[in-house]
């Protein structure tokens, strides 16, 4: 839910300094951290995305199948990552859980990006009082302690996958909105917008056919970080038992039983794999987003 724009740190001047103070070691370190990490990240995401899609074929067991003869068994050849307190296969639950976690991330971020883009476009393009009030609305949503409202809505609407997506999505749009508004403000004054006005294009057409394609690059980058944030939010809510409930597996609710010290102490196969997977996915998305920002930001083109 937080704005995850923590990495807007490379500007043109930095890049100039970069070339002037370069050494081979630093250059390789930099390449390793910038692009190679993003490539590895993309690969990790591709693999996890494919295993999630192919869950019915790949998962060795039914994720909800209870096996009373194999409860809390450590990893073995039959159950590669052991079994949980109901004898369910942890690996299969991880594979199926990925479907939930990844789709919640994608859909929630999609909702947030859609709302933010539309409000930002209207706000930036209309100007005057429409802009003023839409920006005040954004201010208010930004100051709302989101988690309190999210918990409220989840308590009332009930913890289903769809509700989680919806609730995370409708409070995450403010950053995108500000971004799109800013870009739209500068696009509005360009000649091509004037030209479309002259040939009588409707405001809606100008906004969505002419301005939107020009502001889409930063929106994609912001959307990437929103996916990472949404995955973390879903995991946090499900971990607290306020998100997606058992027996549906998500990476977040698989960690719930690690709240007991016995599980934490002696059954690491129950809580380490889902936690590491969430970290790996979010890290990959963040690396990817950072690389996308470098690649897509037109202001960084002349480096």
């Amino acid at each position: 839910m937080n704005d995850r724009d923590d990495f807007q740190h490379l500007d043109e001047r930095e890049r100039r300094l970069l070339s002037s103070r370069d050494t081979p070691l630093k250059r390789s370190l930099r390449r390793f951290l910038r692009h190679r990490m993003a490539v590895i990240g993309a690969l990790v995401l591709l693999i996890l995305g494919l295993t999630s899609l192919g869950a019915p074929i790949i998962a060795p067991y039914d994720p909800a199948e209870v096996d009373v003869t194999a409860i809390k068994k450590p990893p073995s050849s039959a159950h590669l990552l052991g079994t949980d307190y109901a004898g369910r296969d942890v690996l299969s639950r991880l594979i199926w859980g990925g479907r939930v976690s990844l789709s919640v991330g994608l859909v929630a971020a999609g909702i947030a990006v859609a709302i933010g883009t539309v409000i930002g476009l209207i706000s930036g393009f209309s100007g005057r009082w429409v802009d003023f009030w839409l920006q005040r609305l954004t201010d208010v949503v930004m100051t709302i302690p989101t988690f309190i409202i999210v918990i409220t809505l989840v308590a009332v609407l009930g913890p289903s996958i769809f509700n989680i997506m919806f609730v995370i999505g409708i409070f995450g749009w403010t950053g995108t909105c500000r971004l799109v508004r800013g870009e739209t403000l500068s696009m509005r004054e360009r000649d091509f917008v004037m030209a479309s006005r002259c040939i009588g294009a409707s405001p809606l057409r100008i906004m969505f056919r002419h301005i939107l394609p020009n502001v889409i690059a930063p929106v994609i980058v912001a959307g990437t970080f929103l996916i990472a944030g949404a995955i973390l939010s879903e995991a946090g809510l499900s971990f607290l038992g306020l998100g997606v409930r058992m027996p549906t597996a998500t990476w977040g609710n698989m960690l719930t039983n690690a709240q007991s010290i016995t599980v934490l102490e002696s059954m690491p196969w129950l809580w380490l794999p889902p936690g590491l997977l969430i970290t790996a996915v979010v890290l990959s998305i963040n690396f990817l987003g950072d690389a996308l920002r470098d690649a897509l930001d037109p202001r960084l083109l002349n480096r």
Partner: peptide, 8 residues
């Protein structure tokens, strides 16, 4: 640090 879930 920003990628690891706080609860994990």
């Amino acid at each position: 640090a920003v990628s690891i879930p706080a609860f994990f």
